[in-house]
């Protein structure tokens, strides 16, 4: 069987090179640094500056009311009637269901599986806005961390041309190392039990494949808006 053959080859190979590799492995510590840039005092400002470099926008707001105002405006500007979203109670912004209801915006059923998969995808395709929360956000790289799972469709940050994410100041961490440590602390070994999918999003979809010209939105959302309260 190929498995056994491959493993046997590996073991033979390691018999000659393992000690060299182990020496190389012990030449430096493995633990990731919590962050890799000089830390900023104001994480919201740092996050927002980093996201701006990536052509994404941050809206620091004082309270839920102001957050709802921003989201309402973004929805109106895009004349959104339908959104692909996380279950609203997972987004952690009181008043969000009422805001959507008042505007007549419906949250589409984003359950995509089984025989209805392709049909459901075609229904979701014309939608202009995705709406999600985050698990945490990384200040030094302008990154959103989204753990998907029940009530948190991965398509709700991917399919539509605009992605609006709601984050809380308490969810900001300094660097990637800190974000990974946070996920571990919060979910332990069960990180991937209820979900198969974790995504880090740093700004809008981009490509430079045509003559090295930067273009946004080739596949994922060309617009990323993050409301931080």
């Amino acid at each position: 069987m190929s498995r056994d053959q491959i493993l046997a080859n590996l073991r033979t190979s390691l018999a000659s090179n393992r000690s060299w590799l182990e020496k190389e492995a012990s030449a430096a510590p493995h633990a990731a640094p919590p962050f890799v840039h000089p830390p900023a005092a104001n994480l919201v400002a740092q996050f927002s500056a980093e996201l701006a470099k990536l052509e994404g926008r941050t809206y620091p707001v004082a309270d839920a009311e102001e957050a709802l105002e921003v989201i309402g405006r973004l929805l109106d500007e895009r004349e959104a009637r339908q959104v692909i979203a996380w279950d609203l109670e997972q987004i952690d912004l009181s008043g969000l269901p009422a805001l959507l209801a008042a505007r007549g915006v419906s949250v589409l059923d984003a359950r995509v599986h089984g025989a209805a998969r392709k049909e459901r995808l075609q229904t979701l395709e014309p939608v202009s806005v995705c709406l999600s929360g985050v698990d945490c956000a990384i200040a030094e790289s302008g990154t959103l961390v989204l753990r998907h799972g029940p009530g948190r469709p991965r398509l709700a940050s991917l399919l539509a041309p605009t992605h609006i994410a709601v984050a809380h100041r308490s969810q900001l961490v300094r660097g990637l190392g800190e974000a990974l440590a946070f996920l571990r602390e919060r979910y332990g070994a069960a990180l991937f039990d209820p979900t198969s999918h974790l995504t880090f999003i740093s700004g809008p979809s981009r490509t430079a494949d045509i003559e090295m010209t930067l273009s946004l939105g080739i596949h994922g959302p060309p617009e990323v808006h993050v409301v931080v309260l």
């Binding site: 991937f192 198969s196 999918h197 979809s205």
Partner: peptide
């Protein structure tokens, strides 16, 4: 600093 998308995938959808 990071690529735009990093996906970590563990098996099929639960």
């Amino acid at each position: 600093k990071l690529s735009v998308y990093t996906s970590i995938i563990s098996g099929p959808a639960r």
